[in-house]
Each structure stands twice: as structure tokens, then as C-alpha cells.
């Protein structure tokens, strides 16, 4: 951003030159200030709020309570259920999306004829909002009107698939819907990665007699490390902040069986009027996301410096 002084500058047009030098800074300043206040400022505000006994409004407190909100949060049944569910949901979602996305990308990369038609079809679910996905899957998995009812009407009377109504299995139906939605997007990321690999390397390997399997496992996939890293970061933060999909699909139910941290956070803050506890859960979620993003940023920045 620090522009070198222009050699052709003349004293008469000094302010024009100044403007030219500083225009980028001036243009960026409002958005920089907005982000500083509205993102980082409010993160600090939330952190501060999490140490107070605020109830209905952020102004509605009379004392600091130290870590009491965090203690109350981790003693709360709903928060423990949420963390357990996240521990099931996030790894399954990330692994399945990566496997399916990579598989689809490799298959699409075989120079097939109608790739231009197939690619948008797989990518299309990403264009839907999670609410639409959630409602569609809710109906599809509902035993009364969805898959189970249809298969039974075909004559297979004993068929049973009612995970969405089962306390222990409902979280897996969320995984199914989320994977359906995001796999195509991951595929697009990997496809871009595959297209970015230098053909010369592949030709050289083929001349050396590498089989297709070896080509992928030894050369292509290791070369796609940046694509994996990006996919991981995108999927991880999507997993942690999942909210609308669960609200639309199960509403957190049956009972509280599909509660996840974002739902618990909203619940504490706006439904239970315990803004202090809600703020502490938001901070915990921020820490989780930071644990994913910060190492990624760090490695990116270090690479940038080395180049």
C-alpha cells in the first residue's frame, strides 16, 4: 500500500499527488473502520459480556461474575449434548465430504464427454440454502410421508428407516443432509486443484510406467495439498457454525437430541434471556473456529514469507 513517491510530481499539483498516494487508504478506511468496530469490537464486547450477569439486554447487569457463566455453561445438559453432537457431526461431515468430493472430482477429470452438464448438477445443491435442504430432507426422511412410506407402498412392508425420529440416530440424518449439500462444492475445489497440476509431470510419470493408481496416490493427491487444506478449513468452520440446517430439519429434536453449539448459543441468549451464558458459549465457539483457522493462517503466512 505504501506507494513510492512519484518522480514526476510537481509542486503545483501537490494535493493531487497526495490524493493519488493516499487514495487506496482513503477508500479502504471506511470498511476497515467498520470491520474493526463491527467485528473485532463486538468480539471484545461479547468477551466482556461473558464475564457479567447480563440477562435480557446487554445493559442489564450489575456485577462481574468471573468464570461463573462458563461453569454454568459446561454444567448444562444442553451444552454437553451439543458438544457431543458436534464431535459426531464435524468429523463425519468433513471426512465424507472430502472423500465424496475427491471421488467425484477424479471421475469428472477423466475427460468425459458431458462434463459441462454434470459439473453444475453436482454443484447445484450448494446453491440452495440450508433451510431448503433441511425441509426437503425432513420430508424425505419422515417415516409417514418420505422414503419409508414410499418403499412400503412398493410392497416391501417390513422396510424401516426412521433415524430422524430416533434420539440416538437423528444426528446422523443431519450428517447425510449436510454431506449432500456440500460435497459438490468440495468437488469443485478439488477439480480446480486437479486442473492446476502440470501435465508435464504426469506425462513424465506415465513414461516411467506409473499405473493410474500410483499416479493418483503418489503424485496428484500429494500435489493437491493446498486444495485439501482449503477444503478442511471451509468445512470445519461450516460444521462449527451449522445452525439453519438443524433448525429446519429437526428443530433440535427429538427432545434435545440434535442440539449443536450454535443452537444452544441462540437459545441461551434470546430464548432463556441469559445473555451472559450465551456470550460465553459464543466465545467457546470462537475459540473452536480459531483453533482451526489460526494454524491455517499461520502456515499460509509463513509460506508467503518464504517465497
Amino acid at each position: 500500500m505504501a506507494a513510492a513517491p512519484s518522480p514526476t510530481r510537481r509542486p503545483a499539483t501537490d494535493h493531487v499527488g497526495w490524493l493519488q498516494d493516499n487514495l487506496p487508504k482513503l477508500v479502504l478506511a471506511p470498511s476497515f473502520a467498520a470491520i474493526l468496530v463491527c467485528v473485532y469490537g463486538f468480539i471484545l464486547f461479547t468477551l466482556w459480556l461473558s464475564f457479567t450477569n447480563a440477562k435480557l439486554l446487554p445493559t442489564d447487569f450489575d456485577r462481574y461474575v468471573g468464570l461463573a457463566n462458563y461453569v454454568a455453561l459446561f454444567e448444562h445438559r444442553n451444552w454437553r449434548i451439543s458438544l457431543t453432537n458436534l464431535a459426531i457431526f464435524a468429523p463425519l461431515y468433513m471426512i465424507l465430504c472430502t472423500i465424496i468430493g475427491l471421488g467425484l472430482a477424479i471421475l469428472l477429470d477423466q475427460k468425459i464427454r458431458i462434463e459441462g452438464v454434470l459439473r453444475p448438477i453436482y454443484l447445484y445443491p450448494m446453491a440452495l440454502s440450508f433451510i431448503v435442504t433441511g425441509v426437503a430432507w425432513k420430508w424425505f426422511l419422515d417415516p409417514g410421508i418420505g422414503l419409508e412410506a414410499v418403499v412400503r407402498s412398493w410392497g416391501w412392508e417390513a422396510f424401516e428407516f426412521r433415524w430422524i425420529k430416533n434420539n440416538d440416530m437423528a444426528i446422523y440424518t443431519i450428517v447425510i443432509a449436510a454431506v449432500w449439500q456440500s460435497s459438490g462444492f468440495v468437488m469443485a475445489m478439488f477439480l480446480a486443484g486437479l486442473r492446476g497440476i502440470d501435465n508435464e509431470i504426469l506425462k513424465a510419470a506415465q513414461i516411467d510406467g506409473a499405473s493410474n493408481w500410483h499416479l493418483y496416490t503418489r503424485i496428484i493427491i500429494p500435489l493437491m495439498r493446498p486444495a485439501f487444506l482449503s477444503a478442511f478449513v471451509v468445512l470445519a468452520h461450516l460444521a462449527i457454525k451449522t445452525y439453519d440446517l438443524v433448525i429446519a430439519m429437526t428443530g433440535g429434536g427429538p427432545g434435545r437430541a440434535t442440539y449443536i453449539p450454535a443452537i444452544a448459543m441462540y437459545d441461551f441468549t434470546f430464548t432463556r434471556q441469559s445473555m451472559g451464558i450465551g456470550a460465553s458459549s459464543a466465545i467457546i465457539m470462537l475459540c473452536m473456529i480459531a483453533a482451526v483457522i489460526v494454524p491455517y493462517l499461520y502456515s499460509e503466512l509463513r509460506q508467503g514469507r518464504q517465497q
Binding site: 425432513k138 419422515d142 417415516p143 409417514g144 426412521r162 425420529k165 429437526t250 428443530g251 429434536g253 427429538p254 427432545g255
Partner: peptide, 10 residues
């Protein structure tokens, strides 16, 4: 609860 059908949740 025992008088409610199995498809009740939600």
C-alpha cells in the same frame, strides 16, 4: 407417551 404414535416428534 405410550398412547402417542411413533411418528410424533417435530
Amino acid at each position: 407417551r405410550s398412547y402417542v404414535d411413533d411418528n410424533f416428534s417435530g
